[in-house]
C-alpha cells in the first residue's frame, strides 16, 4: 500500500524470458493490418514491448514497397520472429536461421502446424524442431497445444517459454480449456503465455486471471473495427487480469452471501 491507500501494479511486476525482462505482458502480432502505419500505432496503443514477425521472400518485382521495419522499428520493439507456415522441423530451423541473420536475434517463436484448416500445432514435430533449434543456440518460445503432458516435454527439452493456444489461431473463440491451461501454468517453471484464440478483452483478462505470464494476440486487434482502440482495450484487460490474479479472487459459492449485514434490520 502506498500513502493513498491504493496499490497499483508496481514497476517491479516484470516477467523474464531467456534473460530478458519485460514490463508489458501483452505481445502483439504484426499480421493482417491494413497497413504498417496502423500496425505500428496499434502496437504502441497496446503498450507492447515485443512484436511477432514473419520471414518471407522479398517482392523482387517491387523492391520499393513498404517494409515492416520502416514502421514497426526494431529499436522500439523486441522482434520475435516466428515460423508461421512451417510444417516440418527443418522448415522451421531454416526460417529462423534466416531470421537470425536478418535481425541478429536468438529469441524466436516456434510454431509447427499440422494442417491449414485448424492450424493446430503438430506437437511431435514441434518437439523435434525445438531440439534442433536449441542445439543451434536459439532461445525458443514454443507455440503448443493446451496439453499439459506435451507442455512438460517442451519444458524438459529446454523451451524458454510455453505458449499454449486458447483456441485455434485467428478463431477469436476465447479460452477453450481453462482446466488444462491452469495445469500447465501450475507445473511450468518457465513463463507460460496464452498464444492464439483471444477474441476480445475479456478473453485476455481470463487468461491473465488464470495466472499466465503474458498473452500473445494478433487477429483480435487487427480485425477489430478500430484496431487501435481494441489494442488499448487489450492493454487494460491484460493489466486488469494480472491485478486480479495478484489480488486473489473471492471463492465461488453455491448460494448468496449478503453484502449488507442482516443484523440491526428495522
Amino acid at each position: 500500500m502506498d500513502d493513498t491507500g491504493t496499490r497499483a501494479l508496481s514497476a517491479e511486476d516484470t516477467w523474464s524470458v531467456a534473460g530478458r525482462t519485460f514490463s508489458s505482458r501483452l505481445i502483439v502480432g504484426t499480421g493482417k493490418y491494413k497497413d504498417y502505419a496502423t500496425n505500428a500505432a496499434a502496437a504502441e496503443a497496446a503498450g507492447a514491448e515485443i512484436v511477432t514477425v514473419a520471414i518471407r521472400r522479398v517482392n523482387l518485382s517491387d523492391p520499393s514497397q513498404p517494409m515492416l521495419v520502416d514502421h514497426v522499428k526494431p529499436d522500439r520493439f523486441t522482434f520475435l520472429p516466428n515460423t508461421a507456415g512451417c510444417f516440418t522441423g527443418e522448415d522451421a530451423v531454416r526460417t529462423l536461421r534466416l531470421a537470425r541473420e536478418a535481425g541478429g536475434w536468438n529469441l524466436v517463436k516456434l510454431e509447427v502446424l499440422s494442417n491449414t484448416k485448424h492450424l493446430l500445432p503438430d506437437m511431435e514435430e514441434t518437439l523435434r524442431a525445438l531440439k534442433l533449434l536449441i542445439s543451434d543456440g536459439f532461445d525458443v518460445m514454443v507455440y503448443c497445444s493446451d496439453d499439459p503432458v506435451y507442455a512438460l516435454k517442451l519444458e524438459e527439452a529446454g523451451a524458454a517459454a510455453i505458449m499454449p493456444l486458447g483456441a485455434p489461431i485467428g478463431s477469436g473463440r476465447g479460452i477453450q480449456n481453462m482446466l488444462n491451461l491452469g495445469l500447465i501454468i501450475e507445473q511450468s517453471k518457465v513463463p507460460v503465455l496464452v498464444d492464439a484464440g483471444v477474441g476480445t478483452a475479456s478473453d485476455a483478462a481470463v487468461a491473465m486471471e488464470l495466472g499466465c505470464d503474458a498473452v500473445l494476440m494478433n487477429t483480435a486487434i487487427a480485425e477489430a473495427r478500430d484496431p487501435i482502440l481494441m489494442a488499448s482495450a487489450m492493454r487494460h484487460a491484460v493489466i486488469a487480469g494480472r491485478e486480479a490474479f495478484l489480488a486473489g479472487r473471492m471463492p465461488k459459492r453455491m448460494y448468496a452471501d449478503p453484502s449488507s449485514p442482516l443484523a440491526g434490520l428495522i
Binding site: 499480421g31 493490418y33 521495419v69 485467428g170
Partner: peptide, 10 residues
C-alpha cells in the same frame, strides 16, 4: 538464391 525479409505475422 533466396532473399527474405521481415513482414507482418502473428
Amino acid at each position: 538464391i533466396e532473399i527474405v525479409h521481415f513482414i507482418g505475422g502473428g
